[in-house]
């Protein structure tokens, strides 16, 4: 209530909040806020990437074997393409939001949503395969090594694999929820999203999800080389 009161009093842009002087200040503040949030996300994943690097460094052999033998590069590559494409369509969504083209904006958002479902679908296929092969860390973990390497470290590999791709998937799921909300609000012509800033902020989030996958893909599926 206080917010509305302030708006009326100041006669501001309808989506401008009372604490800001003008829309420009508000937008820039959102961008700074969003980026500092992404910094926390970088550090959040960073902890896991550090753990991965250290275990990888100390157990290069088994990590290579586990990655190459049990993770399928084609699926990973396909998912990379899916995510990159979704990133493109998200960028276009922001573009059309800036151009105030509501229909195209919704189409782009819908396509991004579709991509994220495809991504999760492929991920689910991969995970169910790992479940079936008892690669889920825990009591039922089983791993057969061709080169007779330590299975304990294989468990660490899958532990990190599930933790990192799982955390990434959680981000995708959160992204899906946000996209649905955004889409509904845009379709309903709500003033809050009519302005492009919420879409742009979601776009930043979605591109960040993409960046995480850009690193996860080579780390788990590719390196150091198929020989």
């Amino acid at each position: 209530m206080s917010v509305e009161a302030a708006h009326d009093a100041h006669g501001h842009h309808p989506v401008q909040y009372h604490q800001f002087e003008d829309m420009e200040q508000q937008n820039e503040t959102y961008i700074v806020g969003m980026w500092s949030f992404l910094v926390t996300e970088i550090m959040f994943f960073g902890g896991l990437f550090l753990a991965y690097s250290i275990f990888r460094m100390n157990n290069q052999a088994i990590f290579t074997e586990a990655g190459h033998r049990y993770l399928e590069v084609d699926k990973g590559a396909f998912n990379t393409v899916v995510l990159l494409t979704s990133s493109l369509s998200m960028a276009m969504c922001v573009y059309y939001a800036q151009k105030a083209d509501r229909v195209k904006q919704l189409l782009c958002l819908g396509f991004t949503l579709l991509c994220s479902f495809v991504f999760l679908g492929v991920k689910a296929m991969e995970w169910s395969k790992e479940f079936a092969e008892h690669h889920l860390p825990g009591a039922n973990f089983a791993y057969v090594s061709d080169a007779h390497l330590s299975t304990a470290k294989a468990q660490i590999f899958f532990c990190l694999y599930f933790a990192m791709t799982g955390l990434h998937a959680i981000h995708v799921i959160v992204g899906i929820l946000l996209m649905v909300v955004l889409g509904v609000l845009i379709a309903a012509r709500r003033p809050g999203v009519k302005y492009y800033m919420p879409v742009e902020m979601f776009g930043l989030y979605w591109h960040f999800v993409d960046i995480v996958w850009i690193f996860l893909f080579p780390l788990f599926y590719l390196i150091p080389g198929k020989r």
Partner: peptide, 29 residues
């Protein structure tokens, strides 16, 4: 990954490319 540059070499190439991609996403997208 299908060429052998040694473990370090392959890792470095993969990470260099990933970093480049991330930079592109940050800069343009």
């Amino acid at each position: 990954t299908f060429r052998d540059f040694g473990t370090v070499g392959n890792n470095a190439i993969a990470m260099a490319i990933a970093t480049t991609k991330a930079t592109l996403v940050v800069a343009y997208f």
